[in-house]
Each structure stands twice: as C-alpha cells, then as structure tokens.
Nucleic acid binder design. Structure first.
Lengths: 224, 224
DNA sequence: TTTAAGTGGAGTTATTAACTCCGGTTATTG
DNA sequence: CAATAACCGGAGTTAATAACTCCACTTAAA
C-alpha cells in the first residue's frame, strides 16, 4: 500500500491516511460479511470513524467499492492466466477453481462484484471481463487433453463457480470450508472417466450435520 | 380449489371470490419471478385489482405467502415421501431431485420459502420440516444400496438442492432448463463408480453460450 | 502560533413498501 | 325493484432506511 492516495496531489495528512486505511480494512470485513448492500454508516462504525470521514475520502459508495475490490477482481483474472501457463491442464483447472473460490467464498462483496452488475466503476467491469476468456481457455485445454468431458461448454465453468461461491457465502460463517465438498463432487462429475471408487476425490472434512444446517442461513441475514 | 374460503364462514360474494382467485394467480407469477420481496402493490397491479382488495382478502403479506405456497411446500415434502416408496433407490433419488428442483427453479418465491427464513407462517415451517428427514432417508437408502458414495452426508443433498435451485432461479428467464445440466454433472459426481465414459449422463441440451451468460443476471433484477 | 486540513455525527432528502381509509359501486335478497 | 351489506379502487399515511451534506470543533504540520 502506498502512503499517499493520488500521485499528483499533495499527500494526505498522516492522520487522514491512517483513517483511510482503517476505512478500507473495515470495509473489507463489512462487505465480506454483508455484501455490497452494507451501509457506509456501518463501515464507518466498524472503522471507528464518522460517516463524514468516509465520504471525504471516497466520494460515494461505488468509489469505495471500486478501491476495495479492484485488486481482488484483478487477482482472480490473474489466477486464471497463471493457471493457463501450468503444465498439466487438469491441475491448472483445479488449482484455479480452488484459488478463485477461496477468495469469492470468503467475501460476499467480492463474489457480488465478480458475478453482479450493481456498481458503476469501470475499472471493475474491465477487470471482470478478463476472467471469462481465461477460464474458457482453461476448460478447452483440459478438454483437449482428455481430462474433462467434452459435452461441457466453457460457460458451464463460470456458472459452476457462481453456484459454489453463492453456497460458500451462505455457509461461510458456520463452516468456512464447506464449499470444498461440493467443489470435489462437481469435479468428480466433470472428469471423463473414473475407473474405480478409489479414484474419487475424498471429500473434504468439513461438513454440516443436522441442526447446523438450519442455522446456516439465519446467520446470513439480508436477502438471499 | 373450493368456491369458498373459510368453511365456517359465510361464503364470499361471487365477485370477491373471483378476485381472490385472480390475486392468487397473479401473486404466483409475481413471486415466481421476483421472489418474496415483491410488493403487494405489484401483485395487485398484475391481478388487475386495487391494493385494498388484496389487503381485504389477505390481512398481510405473510398470509398471502402462506396461502400461496403451502401447497407447493407440501408437495415437495410429498415428493420425497413418494420417492421413498419407489423400488430402486437411485431412481428414487434422481426422480425426487428432478421433480423438486423443477418446482423450485421455476419459482423464486417457492425456493425462498423452502430455503429461507423470512416469513411468519407456521404452516409453511411445519411443511418445510417434513422435507429434510425424507430426503435424508432417500440418501441413506441409495448409499446402503451402493449407488451413492458413502462419504456423502445426508445434509449434503439439501445443500446441493439449494445450490441448484439458486442457479435455476437466476437463469430461468433466459434458459428455464439450464439447471438440469448441473444436476447431471453433480449426479455424476455422486455415484460410486463410473466404469467408462459412456456411463456419463449425457448433459441436457439447453446451455448458455457466450453473451447470453452476461444477460442472465441483468434479467434477474434485485439483489443477488 | 497560525491555519489549512481533517473530523464526527446530527440532520437532510429521497425512496420505498406495507398498510389504511373512504367515497363510490355492485351482488344479493326479500 | 329497492334496500343494503359486501365489496371495490387507489390516493394517502406512516415508518423505515440509506445515501449523502454541513458545520462547529480539533489537530497536524509549516
């Protein structure tokens, strides 16, 4: 993180820069838990500053969202690119899904930015648009190499990511890694052939039993 | 549908009963498309009556939701029970998932009622509680019979249903049967062994290519 | 010491959605 | 064909919510 905000402007006063950092840190947590619909008043409270301070540093909500998530979205796009330069195409696919989903499942805000349409920031849309083509490449390569069933369409992967990250957000407060179970199951459904039971991925440990299930969405307040 | 609303009360006047039916029909459509957050004003408009008429027949929103979805929730619970009396336990599981998901994917309101916690109607919760145990039985039987991998936990199925129905709602306006693709993939991931590629379920036709994907959630306005 | 920069948070404004109210209409009944 | 009780529409009320502003006060830094 640089110690100043805009390169061609006077740097912020020390306390102002400190507050800016507090705001971003608080916003990361608040938006991760509640999604983009969280109030800037809540962010301010979490940061221990007044709303005014938030609005002085970030003209409006979208700017804060932009500043907060441009790295995250970019990072996911980069993951897909990096994966494309791995030697084994199946490992690349799995690696990408795990890395990308880990991030999106841990932050509802990030998921909504990647999946959604509810912001004005051009830089986010721009970064978002880099994701799909790279993922499509990943799928095509894994198909060519005979790992992935060939009736799969490249967009299927994007949809699967969307499903899993949705689930991940819903259950993150109760069982942060639960989504890995369903990723495993889906991966087993994507491969071309499985010769014996032993080839099945062992399902990740973390699971939800009985009552814990019901409490899962009582935790995730607000909408769906 | 009976021609009167309450058995021990004077029957409604003919026009009132007609309007009641119109309201329920309109509400079914509106809640299916928009989810439970739709306004009763919108329902009234869709029914071609005034809001007052809606509120005269249904004291509040929850009552309308209750009247509208008790059948639906009950029906899903019954599906699970019926499935349990089918001879082949794998067919039973698949049949239940297809039937239940068809209903929940076609109505965002129904999905929210089944998955969610945002209503006051006791009758709905009551019916809802019948679903989980029946599904758990289904899973256990299919596992005992060696169809389903035994590291699966019974609640996994409920979570899978939740994931798929979420996706189904998001894409229903663009590709109503798209969810079937992902059900197929997941089913392939649930079975204990697949001996050859030919054993893979053929993925359902309907798929989403390129641009259609982006437009999918622009259609599904509101929230997630 | 001076002052420009920064701060908090009460207050403003706009929107939204649930629900009420009442003057006018219509089905039913004797 | 009244008479009337039931019903109707939809403007209006109320309450909540969230984005954003404003200004009297504080503080870093030159």
């Amino acid at each position: 993180m640089s110690t100043q905000t805009e390169f061609f402007d006077r740097p912020l006063r020390a306390d102002a820069e400190r507050n800016r950092a507090k705001i971003l840190a608080a916003a990361a947590i608040v938006f991760a838990n509640q999604g983009l619909q969280a109030t800037l008043d809540e962010v301010a409270a979490a940061a221990g500053v007044g709303v005014g301070t938030v609005y002085r540093r970030f003209p409006d909500k979208d700017c804060l969202i932009g500043a907060l998530f441009e790295n995250g979205v970019d990072e996911i796009a980069n993951l897909a690119s990096s994966a494309n330069s791995m030697e084994n195409s199946w490992d690349a696919l799995v690696w990408f899904l795990e890395e990308a989903l880990q991030r999106q499942c841990a932050s509802r805000g990030l998921r909504e930015v990647v999946a959604g349409s509810s912001h004005t920031e051009a830089r986010l849309d721009q970064a978002k648009c880099r994701i799909a083509p790279a993922v499509e490449l990943l799928v095509e390569r894994a198909q060519r190499d005979g790992y992935v069933r060939d009736d799969l369409v490249t967009t299927d992967l994007l949809i699967i990511e969307m499903m899993i990250s949705f689930l991940g957000n819903k259950t993150s407060s109760v069982a942060p890694d639960l989504w890995r179970r369903y990723l495993s199951i889906i991966l087993d459904g994507l491969v071309v052939s499985r010769t014996a039971p032993s080839v099945l991925h062992e399902l990740p440990d973390e699971m939800l039993m009985g009552d814990a299930f019901r409490s899962a969405d009582r935790h995730a307040r607000h909408h769906d």
